[in-house]
């Protein structure tokens, strides 16, 4: 696995093709780190020249903004923009739809203008351009259902890329009743990830897991580290963890190609 930082590129006097925005979950959360590494393997396989910010990356401020703390969000944003602009970053790819949405939609008016892509969009591009050929058969005959992340799907109208990429696993893709525009949230958004849910009669991730279970899947595919945690917990709550695994699309591709 080769991972270079922006500073290292700079020292060599070079610019990478993309900046991989790892995000806080992707950097620190044990489960999400596996997604990060799977994506790096895909980037390596396709020979993509990419860099990370490493210790110069800081939280996008997305979750603070959604919690209502606009001050903290803008402080984080302005700090990150300063770093990104100093490195003259043009294209950013991230595995976290929340970072994706924030960088793409909320940084521009603060002075940060980049071409931002979700990792599934970038993988789809690589396939289209012939830079990445997939032929793995590991998941052939398996049933996979994809849970749309709110901040990729409804928030940014990207429903196609993750599904197109998933097709390359040769698995059977089964849609949940609520999918695409009507997909149900996993329950993590809007800073819920970091607090106890308000009083109610059920947890949202359990309800969403029930949606998924209706499709009788072998695998629940996700495209967001927070969704992944929520669905994994949901599957555990339903005591199905022995039969059903919850995997990010990057992991599915990396596994299927035996990277």
């Amino acid at each position: 696995m080769t991972v270079k930082t922006m500073a290292e590129f700079m020292a060599e006097g070079k610019q990478p093709e993309i900046l991989f925005w790892v995000g806080s979950a992707g950097s620190y959360d044990d489960r999400a780190k596996k997604i990060t590494k799977a994506f790096v393997k895909i980037l390596n396989k396709a020979n993509v020249d990419f860099a990370v910010l490493g210790t110069e990356e800081s939280n996008t401020g997305d979750v603070a903004k959604r919690a209502g703390n606009e001050f903290l969000f803008q402080m984080q944003a302005l700090m990150n923009i300063e770093v990104l602009n100093a490195y003259e970053v043009k294209k950013i790819v991230t595995c976290d739809p929340h970072s994706y949405n924030c960088l793409k939609n909320e940084y521009p008016s603060l002075g940060g203008n980049y071409n931002v892509l979700h990792h599934t969009q970038f993988i789809q591009q690589l396939i289209k351009e012939g830079r990445l050929t997939l032929q793995g058969n590991l998941y052939k005959g398996k049933r996979i259902t994809f849970h749309d992340p709110c901040y990729l799907g409804r928030a940014n109208n990207e429903f196609d890329a993750p599904r197109q990429v998933l097709k390359n696993t040769n698995a059977e893709i089964i849609e949940m009743k609520r999918h695409k525009q009507t997909a149900l949230c996993c329950g993590a958004g809007g800073a819920q990830m970091f607090k106890e849910p308000e009083k109610g009669d059920k947890d949202i991730n359990v309800l969403r897991t029930e949606d998924a279970l209706e499709t009788k899947p072998n695998i629940i595919a996700t495209g967001c580290p927070y969704c992944n945690t929520m669905m994994t917990d949901g599957v555990k709550a339903k005591e199905k963890e022995a039969e059903i695994s919850v995997l990010d699309i990057a992991e599915l591709i990396a596994n299927s190609e035996e990277l």
């Binding site: 991972v3 950097s27 620190y28 959360d29 780190k33 990370v52 490493g54 703390n69």
Partner: peptide, 26 residues
């Protein structure tokens, strides 16, 4: 819990109490 999360972001640039310098450890 949200206040804790925000304090973490303020101090170490992540919603959890991890060290900013460990960001590339993965």
């Amino acid at each position: 819990e949200l206040n804790n999360m925000m304090t973490n972001i303020e101090n170490n640039g992540a919603p959890w109490p991890y060290n900013q310098m460990d960001r590339l450890n993965w």
